[in-house]
């Protein structure tokens, strides 16, 4: 794999740790992108090394900052708990003693001001890069390095074509695509990483493309 020179010199970030701090901000950011509105409530559980050394690395502050929509290089990360309180957002952080598959793992349960509700698991895999490994108990995997479209649906023949043909018509190129499902004909999800942004009207089109599409998120 060819890494960018800016993976070597970069990112610009609030310290002290690219995985425990910058990566944690990015995991937090997924919360408000998933709900597609401001966050009303977020319960965060930190596992493994996140739980062990999280306080010393500001992991809790970093995740909350991400939930508030801050970037990894914003000075306000240090004061995110206070800011969240000021904004009336209900936030709870738990440092768990349970084992997790990856040492730097966080589980976030988020409720948006629009009532949307998600639980997701994110891991910080080094250098500030992250991977989302589960949403609403469905195991999946994506890195958030690209604009990412997530379509939740019931596993049914032809659904993928309906979604991808809309993207093609809108001239949105798919960089990577993966499909996950719990079991045949049950809850499934497409993770589509694209080369360009997808606007609200296209998202609506996708949501209405088939009856078995239950939810569409763009991250």
């Amino acid at each position: 794999m060819n890494c960018s020179i800016f993976d070597i010199i970069g990112p610009r970030m609030i310290g002290p740790s690219s995985s425990h701090t910058a990566g944690a901000v990015r995991i937090g950011q997924i919360a408000n992108k998933l709900v597609g509105s401001h966050v009303k409530k977020a319960y965060v559980t930190l596992y493994g090394s996140f739980a062990e050394t999280g306080r010393g690395h500001g992991t809790d502050m970093a995740i909350v900052a991400g939930i508030l929509g801050m970037d990894p290089d914003e000075g306000g990360i240090r004061y995110s708990h206070f800011t969240a309180q000021q904004m009336g957002i209900d936030i709870k952080i738990e440092f768990s003693k349970e084992e997790a598959a990856h040492p730097n793992t966080a589980k976030v349960h988020v409720v948006g001001t629009n009532g949307q509700e998600y639980t997701y698991i994110g891991t910080s895999v080094g250098g500030g890069r992250i991977e989302i490994t589960s949403i609403n108990d469905l195991e999946l995997g994506f890195s958030c390095e690209y604009p990412t479209l997530i379509v939740f649906h019931e596993d049914k023949l032809g659904t993928i074509t309906k979604v991808t043909s809309i993207l093609a018509a809108e001239k949105i190129n798919i960089a990577f695509m993966k499909v996950f499902r719990s079991q045949k004909s049950q809850a499934a999800c497409m993770v589509i990483e694209t080369d360009s942004q997808i606007n609200e009207s296209v998202l609506k089109k996708i949501e209405c493309a088939a009856e078995n599409i239950t939810e569409v998120c763009f991250i």
Binding site: D7, I8, I9, G10, P11, R12, M13, I14, G15, P16, S17, S18, T21, A22, G58, M61, D73, G75, I77, R78, G127, G128
Partner: peptide, 12 residues
Amino acid sequence: ATMGCIVAAPTA
């Protein structure tokens, strides 16, 4: 170490 802004080069 004090949660200021730096550039990871190659790490924090």
